[in-house]
C-alpha cells in the first residue's frame, strides 16, 4: 500500500463517519478528534473501518499514531509492507 492508497482508505472511512467533512479542509498534522469533533465512538469506528478495509490491526499501543492523518497514513504504509 502506498501513500495515495492509504489516504484513499482513510478518507473513505472518514466520509462514512463524518459525511459533512470536506477532505480538502482537513489538516493532516492536527489531532483529528478535535479538528472534526469526533467522539471516542466515532474515532474507534474510524479505526475499525480502516481495519476492516485493509486487514491491518491497530493494537491499543499504536492508537496514538492515528491521531493525525499523517500518522495514520504512515502506519498503514509501513504495516502493509510484506503483506503483498
Amino acid at each position: 500500500m502506498n501513500n495515495a492508497q492509504a489516504r484513499e482508505v482513510i478518507f473513505q472511512v472518514l466520509g462514512e463517519i463524518a459525511p459533512e467533512v470536506d477532505p480538502s479542509t482537513v489538516d493532516d498534522t492536527i489531532d483529528l478528534t478535535e479538528q472534526l469533533d469526533l467522539d471516542s465512538m466515532d474515532y474507534l469506528n474510524w479505526m475499525l473501518g480502516i481495519n476492516a478495509a485493509t486487514g491491518i490491526d491497530i493494537p491499543q499501543r499504536d492508537v496514538s499514531q492515528f491521531l493525525t492523518i499523517d500518522g495514520a497514513v504512515g502506519y498503514l504504509v509501513s504495516h502493509s509492507e510484506g503483506q503483498g
Binding site: S40, M41, M47, L48, N51, Q60
Partner: peptide, 17 residues
C-alpha cells in the same frame, strides 16, 4: 482496562465509557 485491551485486536476493544 488498558491491560485488557492490550492483548486484543481492535475489534475486541472496550471503551472506558
Amino acid at each position: 482496562l488498558d491491560e485488557r485491551n492490550e492483548d486484543r485486536p481492535i475489534t475486541g476493544r472496550v471503551l472506558p465509557a
